[in-house]
Write a protein that binds this DNA or RNA. Structure first.
Lengths: 298, 298
DNA sequence: ATATGTTGTTCCACTTAGTGAAACTGTGAT
DNA sequence: ATCACAGTTTCACTAAGTGGAACAACATAT
């Protein structure tokens, strides 16, 4: 995981609210909160926003806490992760449980997310025609090239998988609908970045700079070279920037009017794809897929 | 859609809270709220629960309001759907927007769900080994028989799609991850019902009775015959009970210890599958798939 | 231009709903 | 018994959230 900038890690906390007591020092397990919020000093801005409903934010924070943690979570753990006091967590989990979003695993006495949460996301998927259109081709491609083929969209400064197709054998890299990956370090993210306006990209670069700190200059260089590669041949290849053993190729997918912004990629462990294969075969095929999808968007 | 019981539709409202003013009569667009809550007088029970956080519930109600409505929603619409006052809705949407779960569509000036919602659901999907295991087989089956093959789990008294594979051509019946279907009327739901304990089933039957009213006796008969069919041959065929032109076949998928509770089905428009095909070919194949998956669960 | 019907935001007075420290309960382990 | 730890409940406090009503900001119609 990326090194953090040297600047004090204090200010960018979760939602401390009220007295901002330093009880949080004990809680707020370092990086977790940062990652979850995915955006710097959001809470700072919100602090004095009379329209902002903190109860709701806290409750959603509980749900977000399950991301990246496969195991069920108890109230105390949730309290540590979110930095919220035990009492509050207890009431929030109770509420989420009543609403059906959390279920108490009787074996462990801890909470798990339920499928009800999936229903919340359904409208996102169903309204995306691109998904339905591309699905078959993505499956075919995944099988033929032996890589995971994914369709992703943006959430703030990261990418979220909107669909993913795995080849039959592949058991590693099991990313799926809802997976969050770094925009700056993945072929998917960089392909997406390519399609943004100069200004939007600048804003994101700012965010990246703060997030990646010392790592940023090199990373920026890499991103720019990826963007240039897309200019040149329509796709970009990223090899190991995100995860050591992973490489992939990404292509942008934008509608004319900018109303739809997505990216496609194909990725897998190094042994599953030579750079040459990505360059000669997979890349061009993704570009082709993107081009044939393009006119149907908007 | 099912006829409602004759009993007054008043009591089972959303979260009216406080004075329970009859302003709601104007709002609360009939069936919507019922459907969303999926459970009778939940709010009644919660009314006096000091641990229950209504702000959180109201906020989630906003998110739920998007289900089943493809189009973006404005504050007023949301207010009508949820029965919440405009002012409150305005603040909740503002909060959800800040948190990145809602985005304001600048063209329409209305809110849409963002992919960030999908990230919330990811842990549910990723923790489900069954999904990864069955995916390939489901895809194959879908293509070979030309039907949508789905894996579903329970949320209260309905089923939620945890995965779905469509054959290449099929553009109708585009259900997908997160889709919610009626437990009582689908092959998926009835297969699931089969695996429950006598007691759990009784509880659900109660819920159904209240929900389906006059329709229930016939429906109950149909369910029981489906359960008997599963006893006899491992699958149940449902033809038109849910949607007129849709038929499908479902099989249960339970782990020994009961820790995993799922169901599989294959369904499509009538022209895509004869009853014979479902009986002779698709049903047995689903049963086979279920049996081979079974030992890997738990 | 003026009226009219929208939809979303902001006041403002009210008070209750939510909060968190600390005390309490329950369950296991030793 | 004793200790440790997870979860719940109590309780006093008050500010956070609420909702009615007034207010903008636009469209459309007249």
């Amino acid at each position: 995981m990326a090194k953090r900038p040297a600047k004090s890690s204090g200010p960018s906390e979760t939602p401390p609210k009220r007295d901002a007591g330093e009880a949080n020092a004990k809680h707020a397990s370092s990086s977790a909160v940062q990652l979850i919020y995915d955006d710097q000093d959001l809470s700072e801005t919100l602090k004095n926003d009379p329209k902002f409903n903190w109860s709701l934010a806290r409750g959603l924070e509980i749900l977000r806490a399950f991301s990246g943690r496969p195991a069920p979570l108890g109230n105390t753990e949730l309290s540590e992760i979110t930095g919220l006091p035990k009492a509050t967590v207890s009431r929030l989990t109770h509420t989420l449980n009543q609403l059906g979003f959390l279920a108490l695993n009787p074996r462990l006495g801890k909470f798990e997310l339920t499928p009800a949460i999936l229903a919340l996301g359904y409208p996102v998927l169903s309204s995306m025609k691109t998904r339905a259109l591309s699905k078959g081709y993505m499956e075919d491609l995944a099988r033929e090239v032996g890589l995971t083929v994914a369709l992703g969209s943006r959430d703030r400064s990261s990418m979220i998988y909107v669909d993913a197709c795995h080849p039959l054998g592949m058991m590693s890299l099991r990313l799926d609908v809802g997976s969050r990956v770094e925009m700056a370090k993945t072929s998917l993210g960089r392909a997406f970045l390519w399609g943004l306006s100069e200004m939007e990209r600048a804003i994101l670069f700012n965010t990246f700079e703060r997030r990646y700190g010392a790592e940023w200059p090199a990373l920026k260089e890499a991103i720019e070279s990826s963007l240039a590669q897309i200019d040149a041949c329509g796709f970009c290849i990223v090899d190991g920037d995100w995860q050591d053993d992973t490489r992939g190729v990404g292509v942008p997918l934008f509608s004319e009017d900018g109303s739809v912004a997505l990216a496609l990629n194909a990725a897998g462990p190094r042994f599953a794809a030579t750079i040459e294969a990505l360059e000669q075969d997979v890349g061009p095929r993704l570009v082709h897929l993107s081009r044939s999808l393009q006119p149907m968007l908007g």
